[in-house]
Design a binder for these strands. Structure first.
Length: 230
DNA sequence: AAACTGTGCAACCGCCCCGGT
DNA sequence: AACCGGGGCGGTTGCACAGTT
């Protein structure tokens, strides 16, 4: 029963890719382009699952990938975007040219989580850990930590005027202060629609028209969606 | 030098979404 | 409207390497 496997597992290689496999995949995609990952392995002469080929290409072989350490600006941007969208790594990756969702996810789990904990912030909620425990028992109980829990299931605490700032060119000392992500901004920043910033200008969710200088972002929910949740 | 432990990252797994029929 | 298959995504695992004892 259930879905048929994406490939014949008995006849596919697993584990680390060899140089030869990489070269086969690269040359095939250069010649034929991306697409139809299911049939690609056979066509390219690879004993791999189509999904495996896609992952290898997207996360490692793509020519536009930026390898190397994350910059402080990228760090801050990841933190702020995570505060807004949660573990939507592909969405976050979309705002970081040359970075992949897998790379960002790994970086988050190995570096940024620790960084936030060092700042006394809960990596899931981006709120001070003490505040989390003392003032918000319902959130403290929710260990799932996915974005939906922050969206306000049940105990709704929806702030539709969510604003964040662009990554500041801050010194490491300054970075010890809590990031503004996912908190109601008290500063008077000019607003930038988050939909635009995330590349959804043409979507129905984007309701902004004229954007001033991008000194901050504003997450504008579709009216119907906000009313539904409320 | 060997054993142990911690860390980082590539890769896999399973579920979900969406488009085609 | 229902079903099916492919692609995409997030969570998790496993391995290699570095650091420590």
């Amino acid at each position: 029963m259930g879905r048929s496997p994406c490939c014949e597992k008995a006849h596919t290689n697993k584990g680390a890719w060899t140089k030869e496999e990489d070269e086969r995949l690269i040359s095939y995609i250069k010649a034929h382009g991306e697409g139809c990952w299911r049939s690609l392995p056979k066509a390219a002469g690879l004993l791999r699952c189509g999904k495996s080929c896609r992952l290898r290409w997207i996360n490692y072989l793509r020519p536009d990938l930026k390898r190397g350490n994350f910059t402080a600006e990228e760090d801050e941007l990841i933190i702020e975007l995570h505060g807004l969208v949660g573990n939507k790594w592909s969405l976050i990756a979309g705002r970081l040219p040359g970075r992949t969702d897998n790379e960002i996810k790994n970086y988050w789990n190995t570096h940024i989580k620790r960084k936030l904990l060092g700042r006394g912030l809960d990596p899931k909620t981006h709120r001070p850990i003490t505040t989390l425990n003392q003032e918000e028992p319902c959130m403290a109980q929710d260990s799932s930590g996915d974005s939906s829990s922050r969206d306000g299931d049940g105990g709704l605490d929806l702030n539709l005027d969510l604003s964040i700032s662009l990554p500041r060119h801050s010194s490491p000392e300054q970075s010890s202060s809590p990031p503004p992500a996912a908190t109601a901004s008290t500063s008077t920043v000019q607003a930038l629609c988050l939909c635009c910033h995330l590349g959804f200008q043409s979507s129905e969710t984007c309701s902004c028209r004229h954007i001033p200088r991008p000194l901050g972002f504003r997450f504008i929910w579709p009216l119907e969606e906000a009313q539904r949740i409320a």
